[in-house]
Every structure is written in structure tokens, then in C-alpha cells.
Design a protein around this nucleic acid. Structure first.
Lengths: 349, 349
DNA sequence: TGAAACCGTGGGACCGCTCCCACGCGGCAT
DNA sequence: ATGCCGCGTGGGAGCGGTCCCACGGTTTCA
């Protein structure tokens, strides 16, 4: 009989939810008043507010986001963009912790989190247009590469954007990062304090800011302790296990007498461990080892790895806050926040 | 002069994007025609279509999602709900792989992924109302507990829902899961094939379907091989490292002569390794060990752990597809999909 | 040759909300 | 008393789409 018998593809269940109008009718007030109550406007009498709130409760009214967005031009949602190539890194606490921080930071403001995995280059290229098309109020980006221009494009389109980490020392956009330099410094100081003097380091790719910063921290610590920096003790990896292993091999070849290594990431450290073991070096007796990230592998490496921990969740929360701030008051000036790291001492050093 | 000088908090940049109207005007056709072109309706002449597409390209037009949602009552987005308590599991490939699969599956359909971390109980309780309030077209849920009623509530509110894993053998909702029983069986068969006969198992919490299924697989394999199941060789853990360790200790106490162990998760296996090592057992010589999940720790345990891998990404993609299907044709009947597992042989067994 | 069927098309109505203007009313100064 | 101010308040307009009806122009078939 009714059209209800016809299939209704692509239609949500037509259990029509109460509208603002319905609430107004029930409360015996105008739509404007209901809207004011919902949006916490002060220009409502206590009485009206009570009546409206009552009606809302009775009807189980929830505002329609689309209708609101349409007029306010806000979406109350932000996108978290992660290049898919890096998704594997998800497996590191890095992503999950940051995400939970972001989520916590956004929840308070009633913002939704849109997860966008940029699969291939094509998709990535379209992203700027896509994200600027009034779909989100702002964008958070993780794992930005030095040569990544998406942030700049978003900036041109005046889409509030906050990055996890910076692309270079002169990052123009707002971002949050850990004190990589300080963390590295503390790590190396820890090795120095244990009496180690021939300390090598395995760096990340030098076109990444984190890698440069951690290397700088290594240098600073040595310099500060009056130990000359031996360039032969610096080998570069690429943040992969195999890269770490190769770098370690190189270090052992160049300076067989080294007694400690600071690896700029736990994953590289785990590669180094394999090589050290193969070379018959015992840890920490012969060679002490410190990593960076305090990732999940740190605890499972044998011996458990001393590592530098970043306040990931706090970084996420801070990113959310910076973004919310930027959304609320545009162009309040870009801000960068650097959060402190912490050395987690285990058995490897 | 203009109002542009006034601060405009909470307003997106007023660079007004072209509307469908603008496109129509430029193309010299009516709004209806433009709408038809955008939605791929066949009832448009080739000529009109060409003109409209041209105009769209020239203006860089992108449809306004909110406006569309308002009338269609669709949002073209689905929520992925993850109880925050489980977020730590993010660090396992489990979540990241599933997410990437989900994302891939949704991307093809032009759907957005809303990540919802349900923090505390209160929030979790509100979620049903929230999610049913025309905010998403469907819901994907991970890490559902046996006593979780959110899925049922969503179902009542006729919100299409698909789960990762089932709550019990009689799960009424659509879901995707790995062949836990078969995987466990293959794992144990692998141990049997290596000549092991006194095979213990460390199970997960028995109120979880995965745990029960994996234990069943263990039993099946033994039975099939004509080996009597010794209940003393079954110890229960809780999917944590410490739980695995305790269970292993118990097994060694009960049956010091065991020559193999099947742990229902890699994390528990890593705990077992610690205990075995403490007890002076060498692996795999004295005791062979197989885990489940092929998580990141599996490769880093010493010796590298033989483990059962689940096709996580495919599970994610399948979840997305089931959900899309359910959204498009409601009530086409609940479906459950079971995907095969694979034994990854390393050095521990 | 005329009616019927069909096809692409334009545009009005509407989705549910916010914004803002105009209005009524009581209190205060004139 | 009369005017003015300010505070709630109601409701029209409009956000940018989709849906659907009505319309003119062909084609089809009796």
C-alpha cells in the first residue's frame, strides 16, 4: 500500500527524529528560543530554558548536524591525515597514543575525528581540494615529509592545520613535537655517566628534522662533557631494522672498540642488537645501547632496551588544542609546542 | 568598513566556494541537470553532460556535503568505534591493519571514516543515541566484549552495524572474524608434525569467543592425531604478558615434561618465553612454542616466534563491504564471514 | 493524422537549522 | 503621563543541495 513497501536504497531508516520545530511546539516557544537554549545563548529567560530543556529531554532531541553545518559553515569535525605509506607505523605506540590524545582533546570540544589515510600519490594530490571543500574545520597531519607540500596548500586555502613534528627548522605551520634534541642529549649523558667514552650513534635519514635534532643532541652531550666528536662514530640509518643493522656493522668496522651506541630509534636499535650479538658483543657489558621512542619492541628486545620516551598522548592532546584554537581564532599566529622527553632506563644501558 | 573587519569566530574562511547554482548558471542549464550529472543519472543528454562537466572543472566545484546530507538523510560516513580501554591494542598490527583495510574498502565507495574512541562508561552509554542521530550511515565496532550491548542497541535503532569478531557463537549481528579454530588447529598440528606429544596450551579468557575457538582448535588437532587431551595441560591466561607468564609457570609445575606450548596470543607467548627461560628450558630444543596473531613482538622475541597470522587487512576490507552492503540494502540478512589464517613458521617451533 | 508514450529539462518545494530583524513589554528617566 | 531603553522573544529568510512534478518536443503506434 504505502511507499514503505518499496525498497528505499540509500535512505536511512525513516524513523524521523524530532526536529527543533517539534521541540519548539512542545515547549510552546519559538524556534529561535530553542536554538538559543541549545547553543547556550545567555539571552534566554530561566523559565524558557527550563521548559525547552524539558521538551528536549522528553523528545530525546538531538540536533541535526547537517542542517547546522549548512548554515554555520562549520562541520565540527577535523581530519587526521596519515599517509598510507606510514600506516605500518601505526603498529608503533606512536600513532595510537597520539590518536588517543587527539581524540581526547577533541572530545571535550564536541569535535569529531575523521581519519583519512592517503593511499597513493593521486589521492594525496586531490586531498587539498577535498579537505578545503567545507568538509572539515581543520586538519591534523602526521608523518609529514620534508618535501610534503600538502600542508602549504592547505594553508593557502586557509584551512587551519597543525602538524605532528616539523618539516624543517623553519616550519611555517603550527606544530607539536617532542624535544628530540634534549632527549638525545639525556640519552648520551646517561651513557657518559656510566663511564662510556667511545659512543657511536645511528642516525635517521638526515633529510628529516627528527633525525637531525637527535644527532645534534648527541653532539651537544659529548661536547658538553668535553669528549671530542668522532665523525667516524656517526653512521646513518633509515629508521628501519635493516638500516640499523647495516649502520651497526659499519660502526663496528670503523671503530671496533666502541663501548656504547645511541640509536635514534628503537627499531634501528633492534637491528643493531642483532649485529652486536653476531659480533659476539654482550650488552650492556661490552656495548651499552640506548634507543629512542620507547616503542613496544624496546621491552621485548633482549636485553630490554633503555630508551627515550616521548609524551605521545600529550602531544596528541596538544595538537588538538592548537587546532581548536586556530579554528576559533584564525591567524592568532602560528605556534609551535615542544614537549619534554623522558629517559626510560632498562637493562641495555 | 565592511563586516569583514569584525572578528568572525567559528566561521570558516568566507571564501565562498562555487555552488551548484553557479555551475548551472555557467553551463547555461538548470540546477536539476547539474545535480543529475553529479549523481550520474542516465537521464541527461551527452551534450548537457559535457557542458556541465566543463563548468564543474572550470569552477573547481565540489558539492557541499552538508546540504546533500540534509535532504538525502545520508551522511556518506561510517563510524569505527573502539572502546578506549582497548586502544593500547592499537599498538598491535591488529588495529592498524584492520583500519587500513576498512579505509580502503570505504574509499572506493566515497565514504568517510569517523574514528570514535569511547572513553569511559558514560560516554559509551550515550554513544547509541549519538550514533543513531543521523550522524553516520553505519557503524563498525572493534573489540566488542561478550557483554557489550551497544551493538544490540544500535541494531534496535536500525543502524547498520558490523563487528570485528563475534560476541558468542550465536552472534545475531553481521561480523567478520578469522578462522580462529582452524588456525589453532594448524598451529598444534605443526607441533605434532615436529614430533611433540606433550603439548600444553595457554588460553585467553574463556568468556571471549576467540579464546574458546582457539582452545577448541587445540583440542581438535590432538583428537584428530589420536593424542588424548590432558586437561592439566590447559592453563588460562588473559591475553597479557604477565598472564601468559603465570600460566606457563603453572603448566611447568603441573607437567614438567611438556615439550611444546601453543599460546593463544603472541603477547602471552612472550610471557611464556620469560618463564621458560627462567626455568632453563631452551627453545625450541626443549620446548617448542607457537603463538597467535603474528604481532610485532613475534619477530622480536628470542627465538623468533612461530605464529598464526590473520588476514587483518582483508578482514577490515570485508567489514567495510558488509557494512556498505547493509547500508545499501537494509536487512538483506545478517552475514558472517570467516577468513582463513596462515601459519608463519619461525624458529621457536 | 492524432493520441499516447517518452525523454530531457527547468524550477518550486523542502530538508532542519541559525541568523537577525522587528516587536512587545516592563522599568526608568524626563 | 510620555518617551526611551533593553531584554526576551517569534518567525522570515536562506544555507546548498535533491526530489519530483510539469512541460515542450520527438518519436511511436493505432
Amino acid at each position: 500500500m504505502s511507499s514503505a513497501e518499496l525498497p528505499q536504497p540509500h535512505r536511512t531508516a525513516d524513523v524521523r527524529r524530532p526536529t527543533l520545530n517539534a521541540v519548539a511546539a512542545r515547549a510552546g516557544v519559538g524556534r529561535g528560543t530553542v536554538s538559543r537554549v541549545i547553543n547556550g545563548s545567555p539571552k534566554v529567560s530561566a523559565q524558557s530554558r527550563a521548559v525547552v530543556e524539558q521538551a528536549i529531554a522528553e523528545l530525546g532531541y538531538v540536533p541535526n548536524r547537517a542542517a547546522r553545518s549548512l548554515v554555520t559553515r562549520r562541520t565540527d569535525s577535523v581530519a587526521l591525515v596519515v599517509p598510507d605509506a606510514e600506516t605500518r607505523l601505526f603498529s608503533e605506540p606512536y600513532f595510537s597514543e597520539i590518536i588517543r590524545g587527539v581524540s581526547a582533546g577533541l572530545a571535550g570540544a564536541g569535535m569529531q575525528l575523521l581519519l583519512v589515510l592517503a593511499r597513493d600519490e593521486t589521492e594525496y594530490a586531490r586531498l587539498a581540494a577535498y579537505l578545503s571543500a567545507q568538509r572539515v574545520d581543520g586538519v591534523l597531519m602526521m608523518a609529514v615529509h620534508s618535501d610534503d607540500t600538502l600542508p602549504d596548500r592547505l594553508d593557502e586555502l586557509s584551512v587551519p592545520t597543525v602538524l605532528a613534528g616539523r618539516r624543517s627548522e623553519t616550519e611555517p605551520l603550527g606544530h607539536v613535537r617532542a624535544d628530540n634534541r634534549g632527549g638525545a642529549r639525556v640519552a648520551v649523558e646517561h651513557l657518559l655517566a656510566a663511564g662510556r667514552r667511545v659512543i657511536g650513534t645511528i642516525t635517521g635519514p638526515m633529510d628529516m628534522d627528527v633525525a637531525r635534532e637527535r644527532l645534534d643532541g648527541y653532539r651537544e652531550a659529548l661536547k658538553h662533557a668535553g669528549v671530542a666528536v668522532d665523525e667516524e662514530l656517526i653512521a646513518s640509518g633509515d629508521f628501519t631494522e635493516e638500516g640499523g643493522r647495516a649502520a651497526m656493522r659499519e660502526l663496528l668496522r670503523r671503530r671496533p672498540g666502541l663501548d656504547a651506541v645511541f640509536a635514534a630509534s628503537d627499531v634501528m636499535a633492534s637491528g643493531a642488537v642483532l649485529e652486536l650479538r653476531a659480533a659476539g658483543r654482550r650488552m650492556p657489558r661490552d656495548v651499552a645501547l640506548v634507543g629512542f621512542d620507547d616503542s613496544i619492541v624496546a621491552r621485548h628486545i633482549d636485553p630490554p632496551l633503555t630508551s627515550v620516551r616521548q609524551p605521545l598522548e600529550e602531544m596528541g592532546r596538544t595538537m588538538a588544542n592548537l587546532l581548536l584554537d586556530e579554528i576559533a581564532h584564525r591567524g592568532t599566529g602560528r605556534r609551535e609546542v615542544v614537549l619534554p622527553t623522558e629517559l626510560v632506563v632498562r637493562e641495555s644501558a
